[in-house]
């Protein structure tokens, strides 16, 4: 299975690559201005987090918008990737009232294939100044934390998922399980 990581400049982009590799996916980190045609035939895409503010600065997000428009296989947006997903598809992202750095706890409100086999509350690691403030049309919120209402979201019909927290770092509980669920989804959407 081929699932690539689009690099938006995050500190943990390379960790996403490592987790996918450990789970047996064929993976590669690609620049965020890679042409859509070069990603043809992939089974899934991860839009990485990014340097400060890039999630709300479309100028720095390269072709992320084209991927969201054109790609049919599942896409998982993380942090900046999640914020950009919301903004690009008609929702909004803005500076968080309370930015979160480090340890936090998320609560799942809406069971989803992404969280299959996970408890409803678990410890996650955060590192964000911005957050999704308004869901795009046809999206549902899946999870929240004490200081952030939209920690996870998904499109009702299309396989588009966004996470504010970082499943790719060692200290997030069940992080690898979330990626495993995402890969299973990529497999079944083939």
């Amino acid at each position: 299975m081929r699932v690539y990581v689009v690099d938006n400049g995050g500190q943990w982009t390379h960790r996403e690559w490592r987790v996918l590799k450990y789970l047996g996916a064929e993976t590669k980190i690609v620049a965020n201005d890679t042409r859509v045609s070069e990603l043809d035939g992939l089974d899934g895409l991860v839009l990485s987090g990014g340097a400060p503010r890039v999630g709300v600065d479309p100028g720095k997000m390269g072709r992320n918008g084209e991927y969201l428009d054109a790609f049919e296989a599942p896409i998982l947006g993380i942090c900046a990737g999640h914020q950009f997903m919301a903004k690009h598809l008609g929702g909004d992202a803005a500076p968080a009232k309370v930015p979160e750095f480090g340890k936090s706890v998320v609560e799942i409100h809406q069971p989803d294939v992404l969280f299959e086999g996970l408890p409803n509350r678990f410890e996650v690691w955060e590192s964000h100044n911005d957050e999704v403030t308004q869901l795009p049309k046809d999206f549902v919120a899946l999870a929240s934390s004490e200081n952030c209402d939209i920690q996870a979201m998904r499109h009702r019909d299309r396989p588009l998922f966004g996470l504010q927290f970082h499943p790719e770092v060692e200290h997030t509980q069940f992080g690898a399980d979330i990626f495993r669920n995402f890969l299973r989804l990529c497999e079944t959407s083939k």
Binding site: N8, G9, G10, Q11, T13, G50, A51, P52
Partner: peptide
């Protein structure tokens, strides 16, 4: 190793 060049930044990535 990986954290050395990741944290040193460059292009999009911020320098930690």
């Amino acid at each position: 190793i990986a954290p050395d060049w990741i944290e040193s930044g460059g292009q999009l990535r911020d320098r930690i």
